[in-house]
């Protein structure tokens, strides 16, 4: 007995001194793939935010005589699109809208889904049944179909596409949040909090949230990749933003007619969606394994 305690005491300081999140942070900083992805994402974000100050060509200014220039044309490093607009400028400006419509639904879904899941998991009983059975209905649709059905019924537009994608993600995040919360609910420290007189709201906010948020957050990060693809896909179908706005999915759609003239310029916007999506996926994988201390 004392031998075990001794060993535990000797092992403890190293873990104690750092704490869980510091350990996770250190592990993820050591992961080269995650760091490379984070770097690429930050670069794309900063470029999108600072686009007007980067000395780029006007992304709306076309020219009939400079249409569909090839990649590497002097003055147009990534060529020009079907209306003679500079592709480099449009790709960087396109990041603004594409990233917003891709990421915002996951953030909204995270907020709504976490709240619903937390309440369902903590309160249990009839509330749980009501919330979770409603969630089940949305699981009866393949997510692409659900997004397109709602978006198609509401009509084209940025807000409608964000709303439809949020409706797709809320049930998924709710399910994860509910199952994590149910797991934490019966733990001793929650019982202790209840015994010392904490109300349900305090217990949820102070004692449960911190313990469930990590897993839900990692799950939500993994959804950003899907969300980017679907959001751009809605624009690609013509259900998102409208021309001449630069947005990767829409650019891919309008350039489709150009694949016989200048195929590789036409493929560029999709390359951007792919890059962002794969980086978020790899980053989410990296976070998941960093948080899994057992390994």
């Amino acid at each position: 007995m004392s031998a075990i305690t001794d060993a535990a005491l000797q092992a403890a300081p190293a873990d104690k001194a750092r704490g869980y999140w510091a350990t996770v942070g250190r592990r993820i900083r050591r992961d080269k793939v995650s760091m490379a992805c984070a770097f690429i994402l930050v670069a794309i974000f900063i470029a999108a935010v600072l686009a007007p100050w980067l000395g780029l060509a006007d992304p709306y200014q076309g020219s009939m005589i400079r249409r569909l220039r090839h990649i590497g044309t002097p003055g147009y490093p990534l060529g020009t699109d079907e209306l003679g607009r500079d592709m480099l400028a449009r790709l960087i400006y396109g990041g603004r809208l594409s990233l917003v419509i891709g990421i915002l639904p996951v953030i909204l879904g995270f907020l709504i889904g976490t709240s619903l899941g937390l309440v369902a998991g903590y309160v249990g009983g009839k509330v749980n049944t009501a919330i979770m059975r409603t969630v089940d209905v949305f699981y009866a649709f393949p997510s692409v179909l659900l997004a397109i059905a709602i978006s198609g019924a509401l009509g084209a537009g940025i807000v409608n596409s964000i709303v439809s994608l949020t409706i797709v993600f809320v049930p998924q995040i709710t399910r994860v949040a509910e199952s994590v919360t149910t797991g934490v609910r019966n733990m001793d420290f929650v019982e202790a909090a209840r015994a010392s007189g904490a109300g349900p709201f305090t217990i949820m906010r102070v004692h449960m949230l911190g313990n469930v948020l990590g897993s839900i957050f990692v799950y939500a990060t993994g959804l950003i990749s899907v969300s980017m693809i679907l959001a751009a896909g809605l624009s690609f179908l013509g259900l998102g933003t409208k021309p001449p706005e630069p947005e990767w999915g829409l650019m891919l759609n309008t350039l489709r007619t150009a694949i016989y003239v200048n195929p590789w310029v036409a493929a560029l916007p999709g390359g951007m969606i792919f890059a962002v999506s794969i980086c978020f996926n790899l980053l989410s994988d990296g976070m998941r394994s960093a948080m899994d201390i057992r390994n």
Binding site: I229, I259, A266, A267, P269, G270, G271, I278, N281, L282
Partner: peptide
């Protein structure tokens, strides 16, 4: 990872190209 991250409609375009 590439398979789950690729915008499939774009992959279709690239294959057509």
């Amino acid at each position: 990872i590439a398979g789950v991250s690729v915008p499939h409609y774009w992959l279709g375009m690239v294959l057509v190209i």
